[in-house]
Nucleic acid binder design. Structure first.
Lengths: 338, 338
DNA sequence: CTGAAAGCGCTTACAG
DNA sequence: CTGAAAGCGCTTACAG
């Protein structure tokens, strides 16, 4: 493996000192009163040699690393994928070096990944959807790294969340209204997916109950099916509960929709199902059963996140809830009311 | 910002030399014949201090960085999201440090990101779906970094691809067979999405034509609609071409499906459309028009990719095409034949 | 206008 | 069984 060119190689070729090369290449040459002629020569030779600075050496020497870390449960998911993508773009726009790693909802991997971010000398770590954000915040604080929670809240660092209660409330109101309109009378409403104890599920469940209460109704406990976030257990548990159409379903995440649809496909009357989903997917929106989706406002969340990052103040108590965007599904032509 | 603990801090507290601390913490203490008692003490104190090694310093000093880079067009996409996620998992399993960055199909960003990977001292760069992979490979080679292309091929580095021709051939055969069965006679077949000149579109188009030729048919040039990979131009151009049902559509990517569905929704008879899609999405599979999807074999592709990475040999000519997995869409109960 | 020099935090051959 | 020391490639105050 041919050794990469260093500032010493460039210095030799340009017949200047390594220090001068360094300041030309990192743009501080004017401040150091190096002549433009020298700067041009050094830049030309560096380009010819395909020189690329060694980040390890450069970051070691500099006072600040400008590294900003993010851990995220998954990439393979519209919501978290959009978060990761937008995070990178916004970090780069600020001259920061984003380092993202995906922790697959594994608590140990989350913690190890956070440690790794400390090792990368991250100045700030965005902890997205972590199962135990406070454990990570403690690790960060011990190392002098700012932590900010995203998507799921913690007590030891500020949190930027979706307004899960409000989104679920509005979604459930729609579900109540549309099922009554389509079927001519109240039908059983189910809440499917997620895990009780998880903050987001708790908040959405609260919104679900509140909307039912507004309508003078209450939820049947056996219609709350929360076996987690993957689709197989959702399909299994919902299948055992044997729902009968007509009915309405609040799907707590698009992954839950995958499970729900397997059960719905087996029903004698799939057209007797109406569904609302917390989270958004363009194709799920085209399902004939879908009436609305609560799209989490990724841009709004990240705007708030970077406002916290840009401002130094980060009170641990700060907690921002960003409203979701309610997307009505197109009403398929073939679907009759009632 | 409190300074992070260093090996010097631990050394002082444990009353040993910094060198001894270093070898205890990186596991080479047995080789250096340091006593277990000393090692235990150092480990305990390091844990108490929340010590985390400084990667910049450690990687600078070591001979190898163990960093492995990947550039990827998007995270917010089932296919590329799955690639990024699996890449991280497999790299970690090998003790490597994956660094991924998302380049949003921007040629300049791709090149800048590749430069950045060289600066991170990456030993290898996986170039995924790049618009100009050879420009990046040249940069890598100049810096002594191995490059491997994924998803789109280049001439200067080995390439791991989907077997686009074969996948499109099988998908089109299905489309021919199912439209003839459902409508009782051959109907117009359209190819929608992607860009002519792009390797993958070219190969899939070749498969499309080959399957038509097998059936003794040929494609109408005006039925090839390839205005790129985003959904808005697909909807616009397909809308202008005003397709009439009954018809069959080969959608070149799930993003194309989004555009196609906007047009289909406006047709007098959406049920007169059959669609096959290159690429997979669980919800797109549930569209009533969808008959089959070609799921790219991400696991198979990455297995091959890491076989190249693990083995030192990387002949630039090497080109592997991994077969796609054909997923038949569930046949909706409400859909009548003919 | 530019160079010599110290030092970032680590690793590892070498000496004992 | 352990320490002293050199050096990875850079940056930047300091001296001239």
């Amino acid at each position: 493996m041919p050794r990469r060119a260093t500032i010493y190689d460039i210095a030799r070729l340009a017949e200047v000192s390594p220090g001068a090369v360094s300041s030309v290449l990192n743009g501080t040459w004017a401040k150091r009163r190096i002549s433009r002629m020298t700067a041009d020569r050094v830049n030309r030779i560096a380009a010819e040699q395909g020189y690329a600075v060694n980040f390890q050496a450069s970051m070691l020497r500099r006072e600040r690393s400008h590294v900003i870390g993010m851990i995220v449960p998954k990439y393979d998911n519209r919501y978290f994928g959009a978060i990761a993508e937008r995070f990178e773009t916004m970090a780069r726009a600020r001259g920061l070096f984003p380092v993202i790693t995906c922790t697959r909802r594994d608590p140990d991997l989350e913690f190890e990944a956070a440690r790794e971010m400390v090792s990368y000398q991250a100045e700030c770590l965005v902890v997205t959807g972590a199962t135990d954000p406070d454990r990570i915040a403690a690790l960060c604080h011990a190392a002098g790294v700012r932590a900010i929670n995203l998507d799921l809240p913690g007590r030891l660092a500020p949190s930027v969340l979706s307004d899960n209660f409000d989104g679920a409330l509005r979604l459930t109101r729609l579900l109540v209204r549309r099922t009554e309109a389509d079927f001519g009378a109240p039908v059983p409403l189910w809440f499917v997916g997620g895990r009780v104890g998880d903050n987001n599920t708790t908040e959405r469940l609260r919104g679900f109950h509140a909307a039912l209460a507004e309508a003078g109704r209450s939820a049947e406990p056996s219609h709350i099916v929360t076996p987690g976030y993957s689709s197989a257990p959702v399909a299994a548990e919902l299948g055992r509960a044997a729902p009968a159409a007509p009915l309405g379903i609040f799907a707590n995440s698009t992954i839950a929709v995958e499970g729900v649809m397997r059960v719905v496909a087996g029903l004698p009357d799939p057209a007797g199902v109406r569904m609302a989903c917390f989270d958004w997917d363009p194709f799920a929106a085209l399902l004939p059963q879908m009436i609305a989706m609560a799209r989490q406002d990724v841009e709004g969340m990240l705007a708030r996140l970077f406002a916290l990052i840009d401002g130094e103040e980060c009170p641990a108590a700060a907690r921002t809830e960003i409203p979701c965007i309610l997307e009505l599904a197109p009403r398929p032509s073939g679907r009759a009311a009632g």
